[in-house]
Design a protein around this nucleic acid. Structure first.
Length: 431
RNA sequence: GCCGGGGUAGCUCAGCCAGGUGGAGCGCCCGGCUGUUAACCGGGUGGUCCCGGGUUCGAAUCCCGGCCCCGGCGCCA
């Protein structure tokens, strides 16, 4: 038998006259006179198949097929300008694997409805394209760190003390005996592990009970975090810009078709090469004032301010030296300027905003305890974290990358919920 | 948490302001069409008008309470 199973991508490259068998799901069905046009979708693409009335049994099957039915089709590849993609399969055998009930998704579906039936919407070509880019982003993160001598580690999701502010913790009942929380960040555990492996990274979810209703917030998001011993702020900025540039480079290499399908402006990504501009928080405030935006030194930058700044840059850029009070307690104060920290955020251009937060950590025990108290927190809650400063503490720095936000920016999406298959937001935990 | 918008057929919406037997398009079913491209044309099918209470002869429509969703802000990655 001369039929071979091929993916649709492969089938579309076969010479005219080749015999092929493809399988997938019905994407479109059009009946016209004595022909049934059934467009089939698999993970690699779509292809039109044509069933003619001559083959009576098969025609009836094709004529009555429903959208999203699983089918297996054999036929001959034929070049035809009328077919989408210029090639189609003239069907000789049409086998139904599983006939679908009427598919609920039609052209007029709303964002809300698509979220309700997300488990079906993930089949869409848009979602599929995004997932492929996302796959490349994750792979590139692992490849980058491994190439740079970082060890991958795994940290707990159940924790007992906050890393960020306490109000944003999800509480979990632990055997009815005590309360634990879902982690907001693996940072503290990474800091512990640098005394073993020196350079470590992890890719894991982080959970934040922020009641944020914006297009950039998930309550469960994917976090790539790194921490390195013997490193200061500037060493880390270099790692961060290299990492981002590498991720973008890989996506441009491997996901041209997907970016095209998503109508992403590729030229905006091609310029994402190091070095990224570095401006101080103080400079950022001045830039905003020149643009006529009212801000005071010492305030954290809000969404409008961030957006205004991202318009000034063509590629991602760093803002460093945030005021002490605008950042979490573990950031080291700049010895040259006690009003600011050795911290930096990386903002994506085109209005996307913050994708990385990081900086140098406090290495001195007494400074750390003082800072914890200054922030109105109880040092007893951070005992093991303080402990790290007692036994051979060294200068170290790290950062956290919001992977979903990175995917959102690279794909040019207008909402973060489309950057992840099953988004969790303040209002949505189903499906 | 605050501000704004919304919930009517499987889906997208109109009807609500000004109360009087619930509509359209898409989907689905039937028929037609000699290659369609989100096919097209004709016919048919389809309703707990979010829930509870109130006003009224009469409520999708007005009033009160509740639930849910969407957008934005603050906060953050």
């Amino acid at each position: 038998m001369s039929f071979t199973n091929v993916s649709i991508r492969e089938a579309l490259q076969l010479p005219e006259g080749s015999k092929a068998r493809i399988r997938g799901w019905v994407y479109r069905r059009r009946i016209y006179g004595d022909k049934a046009f059934v467009v089939v979708r698999d993970s690699t693409g779509i292809m039109q198949t044509v069933v003619a009335k001559g083959s009576t049994i098969d025609f009836e099957k094709a004529e009555n097929i429903t959208i999203e039915s699983a089918i297996e089709v054999e036929g001959t590849v034929k070049n035809d300008p009328r077919a989408p993609g210029g090639k189609e399969l003239r069907v000789t055998s049409f086998k139904i694997i599983s006939k679908a009930e009427p598919f609920p998704i039609t052209a007029s579906a709303s964002r809300e409805f698509l979220l309700d039936i997300r488990h079906l919407w993930v089949r869409s070509r848009k979602m599929t394209a995004i997932f492929k880019v996302r796959n490349t982003v994750f792979r590139a993160i692992h490849d980058y760190f491994k190439n740079k001598g970082y060890y991958e580690v795994q940290c707990p999701m159940f924790i007992t003390a906050a890393v960020e502010g306490g109000a944003t913790l999800f509480e979990v009942d632990y055997f009815g005996e005590k309360k634990v929380y879902l982690t907001q960040s693996s940072q503290f555990y990474l800091e512990a592990l640098i005394y073993s492996l020196e350079k470590v990274y992890t890719v894991a979810p982080s959970f934040r009970a922020e009641k944020s209703r914006t297009r950039r917030h998930l309550t469960e998001f994917w976090h790539a975090e790194a921490e390195a011993a013997w490193a200061g702020l500037n060493d880390m900025l270099k790692v961060e810009e290299e990492l981002i540039a590498y991720i973008v480079e890989r996506v441009l290499e491997e996901n041209q078709q997907e970016l095209e399908f998503l109508k992403r402006d590729i030229s905006a990504l091609e310029g994402v090469k190091p070095p990224f501009p570095r401006i101080s928080y103080t400079e950022a405030i001045e830039m905003l004032k020149r643009k006529g935006i009212k801000v005071e030194w010492g305030e954290d930058l809000g969404a409008d301010e961030e957006r205004a700044l991202t318009q000034e840059f063509e590629k991602p850029f760093f803002i460093y030296g945030y005021p002490v009070k605008a950042k979490a307690f573990y950031h080291k104060t700049d010895p040259q300027n006690p009003k600011v920290t050795l911290s930096a955020d990386l903002l994506a251009p085109e209005g996307y905003g913050e994708i990385i937060g990081g900086g140098e950590r406090i290495a001195d025990k007494n400074e750390l305890i003082r800072k914890i108290k200054d922030f109105g927190l109880n040092p007893d809650d951070y005992q093991w974290y303080i402990d790290l400063r007692k036994y051979g503490s060294v200068q170290h720095a790290g950062f956290g990358l919001g992977i979903d936000r990175t995917v959102m920016w690279i794909c040019g999406l207008d909402h973060i919920i489309d950057a992840i298959p099953f988004p969790r937001t303040i209002r949505r935990i189903y499906p």
